[in-house]
Design a protein around this nucleic acid. Structure first.
Lengths: 110, 110
DNA sequence: GGCCTTGTACGATTAATATCGTACTAACCG
DNA sequence: CGGTTAGTACGATATTAATCGTACAAGGCC
């Protein structure tokens, strides 16, 4: 069974932007970068949280960290720590509520 | 009656990217810039071609030219010349075909 | 022709972003 | 404790992108 966000609330959730404060151009900018789009697509395929190392990105660790941070600050993903790993998940529901159809359209594309 | 694209085909259409060759991240990047998003929104509201001067942009002429070029090269707008004016229009249909729901979602946002 | 309008082209500058390496922290395992 | 794992933080660099000013081109008008 997949752990839900609520169950994790006692754990180390990292601060992520309230989606109400995020503008759409910020989200588009965040998604308009190949590495970050790859991350988002992988999360969508997985349908469950993934730890940062599991993406098989071809960039350095520090560059990965940077991209995850951009995604988190633009409200696209949430992250929490578990042991030495940091897990990321798509904020699918919140995104859909704030920008209806956007994530679906981006994931559908091509 | 609104002039269609076909009727203008004998005029000076500028080369714009074939949408088949445009990747979604390029489109997202193009839309993720406030001035360009403003242009796209104005075109959507107008529902007809607008000349570049009609947008009331607060940037210089050369900067405008740059942004229109980015939008054109990413397949989002088409442009044609008429007299001394250059008109832009959204490639609504082609965009919808290539990236279903994307433009609508972006225009709906907020 | 001269002049205004509309917009481009080019080059320079500045600002933003992507990238990396190194040093570091925290959790776990022996 | 020391070593390993997973990832961050910081500082540097390199690349990309936004911005502008000036010079230019083409159409329309007198």
């Amino acid at each position: 069974m997949v752990t839900t966000r609520h169950q994790r609330s006692t754990q180390k959730m990292l601060p992520c932007s309230a989606l109400g404060e995020v503008r759409v151009d910020q989200v588009l900018r965040a998604l308009g970068e190949p590495v970050r789009l790859e991350i988002v697509r992988a999360l969508a395929r997985a349908e469950q949280p993934m730890n940062c190392g599991a993406f098989g990105l071809t960039v350095s660790k520090s560059t990965s960290t940077h991209h995850f941070k951009v995604l988190r600050e633009s409200g696209i993903i949430a992250q929490y720590d578990e042991g030495t790993a940091r897990y990321s998940e798509l904020r699918t529901t919140e995104l859909e509520q704030r920008f209806p159809g956007l994530l679906t359209a981006v994931l559908t594309a091509e």
